[in-house]
């Protein structure tokens, strides 16, 4: 089995709202896959379909070689899920929830449980209603991470964690990846995705708009260049693939498609380069290109 998750053409409607509109997603076994998209893009809906909680209207989904709807109960022994907003039973302690969810999944590693409690600095004796948002999230994370499963489905799992715990989370996930577990990580925190993920898929309005390694995605986008020249530049704006040119005396700021970088550099050196700063696109810029469209205003499903 090569792909842990393989989804194609997934469609899901909630009444008149189309939550998934032909979504594709492939997660190879053993990789950490970033699942990115603005609020309401369909990330949670996709994960719920993969969990067999929602039934897709059309399209194919395969999870660990099985059908997520039909084989839900057996597949769930091999995966663990952390929702973006962990809600706990007000009268159960955190420790009880961790044990219960672990046992319902088929058992959990007591050594790992103890270790994780320490690393995440969680008091397992508190009752559900007494935990803060971040601590509820830790309960969900520990319950999932202390189980010996092949696949982790994490839906914005770090919302509410403080930076220290966020760092701890990254280390734990990196360890999981080294141990060969597959992780689908839906996230909003770009640095987290950059640090952890082998490949990412960006979705918008229920559709996959980009997928690939970060290097591949960067290649598709623009590099920003800021240069100080010996003489005023000319002809830069006319070059193909050049955008947002700002020239002030000898100072030039522009954006260029990665494929056209060579031509721009030649044109710049013709004017004599005194200083040059070139920046690869950040993941943020990559995102904003997909996020900042007027259509996103129409989506409101989470």
């Amino acid at each position: 089995m090569e792909n842990a998750i393989s989804v194609s053409g997934l469609v899901k409607n909630f009444g008149p709202t189309r939550a998934l509109d032909g979504l594709d997603l492939t997660v190879a076994t053993g990789e950490v896959h970033g699942f990115l998209g603005p609020n309401g893009a369909g990330k949670t809906t996709t994960i719920r379909v993969l969990l067999g909680l929602l039934r897709a209207d059309s399209g194919q989904a395969t999870l660990l070689g099985g059908d997520p709807w039909r084989d839900a109960v057996t597949l769930h022994k091999r995966l663990a899920y952390v929702p973006g907003d962990v809600t706990l039973w007000p009268n159960l302690s955190g420790g009880e929830v961790i044990d219960l969810l672990g046992r319902l999944r088929g058992g959990l590693d007591p050594k790992r449980r103890k270790d994780l409690l320490k690393r995440f600095d969680l008091d397992p004796r508190k009752k559900g209603r007494a935990y803060s948002k971040g601590n509820r999230q830790k309960v969900g994370l520990i319950a999932a991470l202390a189980s010996n499963v092949e696949l982790l489905l994490l839906d914005e799992p770090t919302s509410g964690l403080d930076p220290l715990m966020e760092e701890e989370f990254r280390q734990v996930i990196a360890e999981e990846a080294r141990n060969g577990r597959t992780v689908l990580l839906s996230s909003h925190i770009l640095s987290e995705v950059e640090a952890l993920c082998d490949r990412v898929s960006i979705i918008r309005l229920g559709r996959t708009v980009e997928t690939g390694t970060l290097a591949q995605l960067r290649h598709l986008t623009r590099t920003s260049i800021s240069a100080e020249l010996a003489s005023p530049p000319n002809g830069l704006a006319e070059l193909p693939g050049v955008h947002d040119v700002h020239i002030q005396d000898h100072q030039v700021n522009l954006q260029v498609d990665s494929t056209q970088l060579d031509a721009v550099l030649r044109q710049l050196s013709a004017s004599g380069v005194r200083s040059l700063v070139s920046q690869p696109p950040t993941l943020e810029e990559l995102f904003l290109r997909h996020y900042e469209t007027p259509e996103t205003a129409g989506a409101n499903q989470k």
Binding site: W89, N91, L92, S93, G95, E96, I98, D99, L100, R103, L104, P124, R125, K126, K127, R129, A130
Partner: peptide, 21 residues
């Protein structure tokens, strides 16, 4: 509020046990 158990009792491992609670 009172503190609860740090570790669940051994029998707390089925949907029925959860429903009972």
């Amino acid at each position: 509020p009172r503190l609860g158990r740090a570790v669940a009792s051994p029998g707390f491992s089925t949907p029925l046990a959860l429903a009972w609670r």
